[in-house]
C-alpha cells in the first residue's frame, strides 16, 4: 500500500516507535514499580534512624502540602543516584557513596529545602519523606 502523501516515512517510524512503547508500557511500569519498591527498601536501610528521618520527612511534606508516595519518591531518588554511578543491584556501599555524592551535589548547586529553618538537600528531604511514607504504609 502506498503511503499517503501527507505521511512521510519519518512520521511512520515515529508512530511505530510510539506504538511499540505503548505496547511495552504496562510491563515497564511494573518493572519500575518493582525496582522502586526494592530501591525504597534499600534507601531506607541506609538510615541509622529511620524514625528520626521520618519525622523530618513528615514536617517537610506537611509544610509543602504534599502527599508522600513511596514509589514515586524512590523512583525520583533512584533516578538521581544513577547520575552518580549507582545502578539497581549495586552493593549498599555504592548506594551510600552515590547518595553522599548526590547530597553534596544538591548543596553545591543550592538545591536545598527548608524544614523548620534547617537547610536540607532536596535528596535528603526526599529520603526523609520516603521514610515517612514507608512508616505510614506499615501496619499499625
Amino acid at each position: 500500500m502506498a503511503l499517503p502523501r501527507s505521511i512521510s516515512r519519518r512520521h511512520m517510524l515515529i508512530l511505530g516507535g510510539v506504538a511499540a512503547a505503548a505496547a511495552a508500557l504496562p510491563g515497564s511500569l511494573a518493572f519500575i514499580e518493582h525496582e522502586s519498591g526494592t530501591v525504597a527498601d534499600d534507601l531506607i536501610s541506609m538510615l541509622s534512624d529511620p524514625q528520626g528521618a521520618a519525622e523530618i520527612g513528615q514536617r517537610w511534606v506537611e509544610a509543602a502540602g504534599r502527599e508522600p508516595n513511596t514509589q514515586a519518591l524512590a523512583h525520583k531518588i533512584a533516578k538521581r543516584l544513577r547520575a552518580h554511578g549507582w545502578h539497581p543491584g549495586a552493593a549498599p556501599e555504592e548506594m551510600r557513596a552515590a547518595l553522599a555524592a548526590r547530597i553534596r551535589h544538591d548543596f553545591e548547586h543550592g538545591d536545598m529545602v527548608d524544614v523548620s529553618g534547617w537547610q536540607i538537600s532536596r535528596t535528603s528531604a526526599e529520603l526523609c519523606a520516603l521514610a515517612a511514607a514507608n512508616r505510614a504504609s506499615l501496619p499499625a
Partner: peptide
C-alpha cells in the same frame, strides 16, 4: 519544637555524607 529534629538530622548526616556515629 524543631529541637526534636536535631538527633534525627544528625543521624541523617551520619547515614549519608559523614562517618557513622
Amino acid at each position: 519544637p524543631a529541637r526534636a529534629m536535631e538527633p534525627g538530622l544528625l543521624q541523617l548526616i551520619h547515614s549519608t555524607t559523614a562517618d557513622a556515629a
